[in-house]
């Protein structure tokens, strides 16, 4: 089984539309994971059925038992996250600020503070319209630990691929370079970097590739909206050449991305457009690269 992670650094470059198209092309020969748990969207394109749901618990929050609390203030004094305040003469915890470090509960002289495990989100396994299975999640409002939920999605997606004896595991990553992305990348065989021909696209591509390099993961690149700016597009190609990153597709600015999306369809199933052919070719290229690794 080969694990392919699609990431972008910058948001809105077409990452999810492209991943879903690959999933549609590969049909039941792959398993899927949507690791963009902050803003998971792939289920919309693949008609996921949310068949299996689990509560996902992660992280703890301090809870003060007011009957035991003497309001001595020890907890507030040690909290580095400003999570404890006195409201109406009672020490109270702000659950959104609480980091779950336990320090307050360890120093409380009357043992009035207990730590409660929080529900951080929902985890799902779905069947999709393409015949493949997908692990995905929804992070709770205001919840922390999206890195851990990403790790859970990845672990379960991997299981889907292994037990189903799939050739590929296809992961939709998250934007940025912080903990969710680091969790998305770990253990991958290939990173597909989706960028766009804008100054921001180039800037973010360079940063996210630096991160990919530290993981020793091979990367390929798709340039979306290459015709928005010829100069930037050239600069991206130059960067790819310098870093020896194969470019597997150059896609034009095309509102088909959005139109297909509005119909809840992947690009490759939405009527005829030049984009479909290019995406099919790029997926074939990616498969050749990953099979020869």
């Amino acid at each position: 089984m080969r694990e392919i992670v699609v990431i972008s650094g910058k948001g809105g470059t077409g990452k999810t539309s492209i991943t879903a198209s690959f999933a549609y092309l590969e049909k039941e020969n792959c398993a899927l994971g949507d690791c963009d748990v902050d803003a998971a969207d792939m289920h919309l394109l693949l008609d996921a059925d949310f068949n299996h749901q689990e509560d996902f618990y992660s992280g703890e929050v301090a809870f003060i038992d007011e009957d035991l609390c003497t309001n001595c203030g020890e907890c507030k004094a040690v909290c580095r996250f400003d999570a404890i305040d006195v409201i109406d003469e009672q020490h109270r915890v702000d659950p959104i600020s609480c980091e779950g470090c336990w320090y307050c509960s360890r120093v409380c002289p009357t043992e009035a503070i207990s730590m409660k495990v929080q529900k951080a989100g929902d985890f799902y396994i779905s069947s999709t319209k393409t015949g493949n299975k997908m692990a995905h999640a929804k992070l709770g409002f205001g919840a922390e630990n999206s890195g851990k939920l990403v790790a859970k999605v990845k672990k379960e997606a991997k299981k889907l691929a292994e037990t189903g004896q799939k050739e590929f595991l296809l992961i939709d990553g998250s934007p940025g370079t912080g903990c969710p992305v680091i969790s998305s990348l770990s253990g991958a065989d290939l990173a597909v970097l989706v960028t766009e021909a804008t100054v921001s696209g180039l800037h973010d591509l360079k940063r996210v590739y630096e991160l990919v390099k530290t993981f020793n993961i091979k990367a390929v690149c798709i340039i979306n909206k290459f015709d928005l700016n010829a100069g930037v597009s050239e600069a991206i190609e130059l960067f790819l050449a310098e870093e020896e990153i194969p470019m597997v597709a150059k896609l034009p600015y095309d509102e088909t991305f959005t139109k297909a999306l509005a119909q809840a369809q992947t690009i490759v199933e939405y009527g005829e457009s030049g984009l479909s052919t290019k995406l099919e070719e790029s997926w074939e290229n990616i498969k050749v690269i990953v099979r020869n690794m």
């Binding site: 969207d41 919309l44 959104i96 409002f141 999306l261």
Partner: peptide
């Protein structure tokens, strides 16, 4: 943006703002 992705993610952001 006025798309299914935009709407889905807007609802999540609204949920977070309401918690805050």
């Amino acid at each position: 943006e006025p798309t299914p992705f935009g709407l889905n993610d807007l609802k999540l952001a609204v949920g977070t703002m309401r918690v805050l």
